[in-house]
């Protein structure tokens, strides 16, 4: 749909003008999704709390310590990749502001590819650990390590799937109110993954490697 089709029709003020008497559907949806992400943050808080409890040599049960399973330099590469993926999505939002459909799709594709690269590195790390016998059932410490990192990874998977859907919707429907609202919510979701990864990187990888 072209931009001109959405231009102001009828009443003098756009629906999202400040102090407009009617509810702004875009802001309502983004605020609602933002509050959902705040509750999602508390799921991670529970996992970080479990990690704080189990991150002790006692809970390694004679198996590998956390310093044996984390590699801060490799995790930093993952950090740069996820930050770059979020940056690519951010550039797509600059393209959205300009109404440039190709720019938005390009940014989403770049964000998907970088997100997939992040997940590939994470899966490779998991495969190496499991091959060395450091499986989730080896100890409480390894259980919480795998659950915490994999929960973030599952969020990444859903973010990538959502982006693939949005690429199709932007290409087929253009910038309708519903599509723009979904892009704004996905922006919140994807940027949130980078913020959670900062906590994982510092709390698990750097803290674990310093022992």
């Amino acid at each position: 749909m072209s931009r001109t089709a959405h231009r102001l029709i009828g009443p003098e003020e756009p629906l999202w003008a400040p102090h407009h008497p009617e509810a702004d559907p875009v802001s309502l949806h983004t605020l609602g999704f933002w509050l959902y992400m705040m509750s999602d943050a508390l799921i991670f808080a529970a996992l970080f709390a479990a990690y704080a409890v189990l991150d002790h040599p006692y809970n390694a049960a004679g198996g590998p310590q956390i310093s044996d399973v984390v590699h801060p330099v490799a995790a930093f590469i993952q950090t740069v990749i996820i930050f770059t993926s979020v940056f690519a999505y951010s550039l797509a939002m600059v393209g959205l502001k300009a109404g440039n459909r190709a720019f938005v799709i390009g940014g989403l594709v770049a964000a998907v590819l970088l997100g997939a690269a992040f997940l590939g590195l994470e899966l490779r790390d998991f495969a190496v650990l499991i091959a060395e016998g450091a499986t989730p059932d080896r100890s409480g410490l390894l259980s919480v390590f795998f659950v915490l990192v994999a929960t973030h990874g599952i969020h990444m998977v859903f973010g990538i799937l959502w982006m693939l859907v949005m690429i199709v919707q932007v290409a087929m429907k253009g910038f309708t109110t519903a599509v723009v609202t979904r892009l704004l919510n996905l922006r919140i979701f994807w940027m949130f993954q980078a913020s959670i990864w900062v906590c994982v990187f510092v709390f698990v990888y750097l803290n674990g490697a310093y022992r």
């Binding site: 931009r3 959405h6 231009r7 102001l8 029709i9 009828g10 009443p11 003020e13 756009p14 629906l15 999202w16 407009h20 009617e22 702004d24 875009v26 802001s27 983004t30 940056f87 951010s90 550039l91 939002m93 600059v94 959205l96 502001k97 109404g99 910038f175 309708t176 109110t177 723009v180 609202t181 704004l184």
Partner: peptide, 20 residues
């Protein structure tokens, strides 16, 4: 009855290449 361009929404307009 109000119809407005979603690209004029403040959440879209606050995108900034320099800030990103």
């Amino acid at each position: 009855l109000h119809r407005a361009d979603p690209l004029d929404h403040p959440d879209v307009r606050n995108a900034s290449g320099i800030a990103f």
